[in-house]
Write a protein that binds this DNA or RNA. Structure first.
Lengths: 203, 203
DNA sequence: GTTGATAAATAAACACTGTTCATTTAGACT
DNA sequence: AGTCTAAATGAACAGTGTTTATTTATCAAC
């Protein structure tokens, strides 16, 4: 089967993604290029296009892997918590922890915008939605009686908020940078928000 | 003074920024290039480098103008409100309104990352801080007795949250897109957060 | 009016980027 | 050994930001 080399298409795909991860981790999205990836795996740039449709598809797959890692981190954070509020705090801290530990990988998820009009594939959206669902699960007891849709919306609201803090902090657009300070902000957002829910204010 | 043309350096600067604004508004940051700007104003690319240090500086100036526009919008939103909570809601709505009305201009503020290690100039940071201060002013009565620093931190927390919702919505990473739906989320965040403050939960 | 200085503007180059595709080449089958 | 075929390449294309030698238009002096 294999013609010139001993690598199957799947192997080359894997090697390329792995090399891309390495490059992104070091230099961020801006430091990534098709030629650099190709060079890293000992092939020429043309080979990448036998395996990926274009560089966007490659990046989407790297992002998918990052989302998987992130999801695992968030999931792990929920195993040793009892109260909903405590769990949400734990998920928030895991989120901040991940973003500050892998800033380039994490940022690339949001820096990479698909060509306009093009929607993310279903399998990708699923990976994103999984994360929101983790928060939904915790909000459920706090919003007993509310509709499923309403709970989903509340989870989105809170989690986008946490993300916003993280995003501005990690891109140095705030004047905080260490994970500790970021967590102070996200903790504050979560605590106030959850307290607001408890206070049962009209939305 | 003027040698070949009738344009001073200042005029060329202005023309370039204006052309860049036009291009960004239409095609976003990705649609911007030095050559396109130069062509738009009837000069060649070299001329831009007599007037701007590099393309990053040009973009920073476009962003500064966007920040000015945005600040005016937020400020205008605060003139006809009475309660702090209502005012914060109004600022939030103005923020969403601006982001959805000028998505490319607004996104560019956050898409454009300076080379690492380089800090944004002081005049730029001032323009950002002004916005947070608008929120601080409204939070002040709700946090009477708290330190200035604490209030500033709370404003940051809340506003990054609002921004996060906006950012994910405008980049189609959420499943909402019309301004109406985004406002539902930001309203919810603000209402719950402010209610949480009122509930005086330990931060 | 001619000449010379000077600063504005250009054109061309450099090293990159993503992407395509004719050509080469290595392995499998007859 | 010869043929077929798919893997891999290398060169090309159009674009990017940036630099710099060269041209050119205007002003001042003669």
């Amino acid at each position: 089967m294999a013609r010139r080399s001993d690598h199957t298409k799947e192997q080359i795909k894997e090697m390329a993604l792995s090399a891309a991860e390495k490059l992104v981790t070091r230099d961020g999205l801006q430091g990534l290029s098709a030629r650099k990836i190709a060079h890293e795996i000992g092939y020429t740039v043309g080979t990448l296009y036998l395996v990926f449709e274009n560089i966007d598809e490659l990046i989407s797959h790297v992002n998918a892997r990052t989302l998987d890692m992130l999801y695992e981190s968030l999931l792990a954070a929920t195993v040793s918590c009892r109260q909903p509020r405590t769990c949400i705090l734990a998920i928030g801290r895991a989120y901040v922890e991940f973003a500050t530990r892998h800033p380039h990988r994490w940022k690339m998820i949001f820096e990479h915008n698909l060509a306009k009009g093009v929607e993310a594939p279903q399998w990708y959206r699923m990976k994103v939605n999984r994360m929101f669902e983790l928060v939904e699960q915790q909000l459920q007891p706090l919003l007993a009686g509310q509709s499923r849709k309403k709970i989903a919306q509340t989870a989105k609201t809170l989690w986008c908020g946490v993300h916003g803090i993280c995003a501005l902090a990690v891109t140095n657009k705030l004047e905080v940078d260490d994970a500790q300070s970021i967590q102070t902000l996200t903790d504050s957002l979560i605590n106030h928000f959850v307290a607001g829910i408890a206070a049962d204010i009209p939305v």
